[in-house]
Design a protein around this nucleic acid. Structure first.
Lengths: 222, 222
DNA sequence: CCGTTTGGAGAGTGGCACTATCTAAGCATG
DNA sequence: CATGCTTAGATAGTGCCACTCTCCAAACGG
């Protein structure tokens, strides 16, 4: 199919598709002549994935490129591709200083990971984006006056563990390695807003259950 | 304290503090003369909250203002303030169309909420930001070829419910209504990256457990 | 009295995700 | 072949956002 049809079928403007092609988020089409290129179904699928990552998953373009190129990096094996892809995913602010508060937070996190026997996370991936994001969040909470101990974090870690099992079960539904790779990235990123919104809804529900009045005020937000 | 000291103690540049004051994220200081203003500890705390929301919680400035003004809106009672504040929090893309896929997603979500007996969410807050974010995510997943049924969502909802209970228990540790309000906002927002990073770490851990290195990983399937 | 500091306001900056414009080369039709 | 529409590709521009810079006049302080 031509670029125009790709645009029509995906709902993405042609200018934006051209931009994605330029940025390497989308592999170039099969050149048919100097001014024509042919795109396949795979391009459409990839385009939808890009849109989902960028718009719903809030993944920056540059990170999305890293993720997607990792997915098809022939020099890596299956699990290395996935690791590289997920590694490129998150996007938290870099820590500004390594002060006492941060050391405390790191100790708390390490205690938690040790208690859970998550030794892999502690050793080979201690500087993974996820680990750093966790430490940064704990630091921020502490500075705000909400210190969180390993005990406080434990319920979230347990939830994370159960969800991870669910996630991997979902991914295992897919047969081919390529499908699994895409599914892993898509499900990791796109279930995040699912989880967060369900938590918010549950908070409102539980709050109503405890304190009994509707959460929503009346006089705001047309 | 003066603006300069506020800056020094918070680590936020004076220019940025002035910007926050202009934007109404920070209440003005007590005017001492035409060119002097005095700031209290409360300003410092508020400033730290703003920074946490904006930098770690990725809340846009405009939303942060809505949240913070709701927290001190004297025309609302305690729970209305909290509702308004949390209502202003998230920031997903607005849905583009109300097509068949979206209707399906809505039905799936409603089924899930009904099954959980989350009637409040279904009725009075059916158009809450969280509900819309959830529907949008399900739509995106479906369009990508990852349909998720109410059964698929159930584990995430279950996790959300347990976390909501934990969250409210944490908030109840605080005595005064004002403290509870700030805690509710801070903990809702700042535990999000905690939860997401713990999920990522757990995924890596579980993945290693299933497919991992020959040393420790044995093919234990869950 | 005078250099420095302060609060305030407006304009400017840099990053990012597009988006509009332009150009040259097709392809389609008469 | 002439004519007009479409396409791929490149370059420059747009809008938004979170700051950040510059300036001013008042005022503090030695």
């Amino acid at each position: 199919m031509r670029l125009a049809e790709l645009s029509r079928r995906s709902g993405v403007p042609t200018a934006t598709i051209k931009y994605y092609l330029r940025e390497g988020l989308l592999p170039p089409g099969r050149r048919v002549s100097a001014t024509q290129a042919e795109y396949e179904e795979a391009h459409l699928q990839r385009l939808r994935l890009v849109r989902a990552l960028v718009q719903v998953g809030r993944v920056p373009i540059a990170s999305a490129r890293e993720v997607l190129t990792a997915l098809e990096d022939d020099s890596l094996d299956h699990s290395a591709r996935l690791g590289t892809a997920v590694w490129a995913l998150p996007h938290g602010p870099e820590p500004d200083a390594d002060d006492a508060v941060r050391k405390d937070a790191r100790r708390t996190v390490d205690t938690l990971l040790g208690r859970l026997d998550w030794t892999h996370a502690q050793e080979s991936a201690a500087e993974s984006p996820a680990y750093r994001m966790l430490v940064t969040s704990v630091v921020t909470l502490a500075r705000l006056g909400y210190p969180c101990s390993a005990d406080d974090l434990a319920p979230y870690a347990h939830a994370g563990r159960e969800l991870a099992v669910t996630d991997l079960d979902l991914i295992e539904r897919y047969e081919s390695p390529d499908e699994q790779l895409e599914a892993a990235v898509a499900l990791t990123v796109l279930y995040e807003p699912v989880l967060l919104s369900l938590r918010r809804i549950a908070q409102a529900e539980e709050s109503e259950r405890r304190y009994g009045r509707p959460e929503r005020g009346d006089g705001e937000r047309a």
